[in-house]
């Protein structure tokens, strides 16, 4: 893995100067660090989010078949989320994995072990490969697919996949009469301060229409099956709102602590998913392509946020942010997707 040192980085976090919208002061501190709340404020904010989450859970538990649908990748963050919701909050969860065709074998084993140890129902949904490969290929080929700001959050292939997963969780919630959906997103991966997000479904579907049209013209047949929530389902569920929880934002736990807490459940670290993922083998491909197009690591904002919150040392963050897989490293994924990528010497 080549290490990139071309761009100046913020001296506090690791945001590079070419990250969209970033500015540095004379001391080399980025605008996000300049505006960052103090350590005390961060803790207070986390405590407040936690209280709000407790309230949201109490108000919305007691769905028909389950209390909560958990978007479960088998990775460390969503494993920890599932553990907390089940053990600390006593929620009856349905854990759901969307198998995107690139799931690590170890993640599969982990998901089975964790759900078994926690005693929760577990479901795997593997969309047809024909569609998934088309979706991923188009995500690479079509730069207009996602909103301009989406490149700050994740790579193009990740953004498509996250969209598909989110919609599937919403459909399941409506089908099972469940008012809570939880995911293991951490700070930086979702809009700021969205540990609890009340989603008005009408509003969500309306604001998605433009995205939907781009998706449909790009992914073709079956797009709406995977990305739309049908009106009939919405009506028959008689639900108008869902509450989306991102407990990781209200917990503020460091990576090592998460891994230590998951070990007794039989969760083991994956070795084939790169430094920024613990479940997906396509992730490195997304990073390599993103870096090639935009010149920065799609995880760099999230990593920087972790540093700002005192959850990761700058040293570890630097290592993560600078280890960019080369296009050579991700040839097998490209081949599997039928994507032509130029190979450096």
């Amino acid at each position: 893995m080549p290490v990139n040192t071309e761009n100046k980085l913020c001296v506090r976090c690791v945001l590079p100067e070419n990250f969209p919208g970033v500015r540095f002061n004379d001391e080399g501190v980025c605008i996000h660090c300049q505006q960052a709340p103090s350590a005390v404020d961060v803790l207070e904010n986390v405590a407040r989010l936690h209280r709000e989450m407790v309230t949201a859970i109490e108000m919305n538990r007691g769905g028909r078949d389950y209390d909560c649908i958990v978007a479960y990748s088998g990775g460390k963050d969503s494993s920890y989320t599932l553990k907390v919701l089940t053990e600390s909050f006593g929620l009856k969860c349905l854990a759901v994995t969307v198998d995107n065709g690139f799931m690590s074998e170890q993640a599969r084993v982990n998901a089975k072990a964790v759900t078994e140890a926690l005693g929760v129902d577990y479901q795997v949904f593997a969309p047809a490969w024909d569609f998934m490969s088309r979706m991923y290929k188009q995500s690479v080929d079509n730069s207009e697919l996602h909103s301009k700001a989406a490149i700050k959050r994740a790579s193009a292939v990740c953004n498509s996949c996250i969209g598909l997963v989110n919609v599937y969780m919403i459909r399941l919630a409506l089908m099972h009469g469940v008012k809570l959906i939880a995911g293991g997103y951490i700070g930086g991966q979702v809009p700021k301060d969205t540990a609890i997000l009340e989603l008005n479904l009408d509003f969500y579907l309306k604001t998605r229409e433009a995205t939907m049209e781009r998706y449909e013209s790009s992914f073709g047949e079956d797009t709406r099956k995977y990305f739309d929530v049908p009106q009939e389902l919405l009506q028959s569920s008689q639900m108008s709102k869902l509450t989306i929880l991102n407990p990781m934002l209200a917990l503020n736990v460091a990576e090592e602590e998460i891994i230590a807490q998951l070990a007794p459940l039989g969760w083991k670290q994956t070795i084939d998913t790169g430094v920024n993922s613990s479940n997906c083998r396509l992730n490195d491909f997304g990073i390599a392509m993103h870096y090639n197009t935009h010149g920065f690591n799609p995880y760099v904002f999230e990593i920087s946020e972790q540093v700002r919150h005192g959850l990761m040392t700058r040293e570890v963050a630097l290592k993560k942010a600078l280890s960019i897989p080369s296009l050579n490293d991700v040839q097998w994924q490209a081949k599997r997707l039928g994507v032509e990528i130029a190979c450096a010497e």
């Binding site: 909103s147 301009k148 989406a150 959050r153 809009p191 969205t194 997000l197 604001t207 781009r214």
Partner: peptide, 19 residues
């Protein structure tokens, strides 16, 4: 210009904007 059609806003971006 319609900010959704221009690709500047999606559902998440809209939620952030409203906040």
């Amino acid at each position: 210009s319609d900010l959704f059609k221009e690709g500047f806003l999606d559902s998440f971006g809209y939620i952030e904007l409203v906040k």
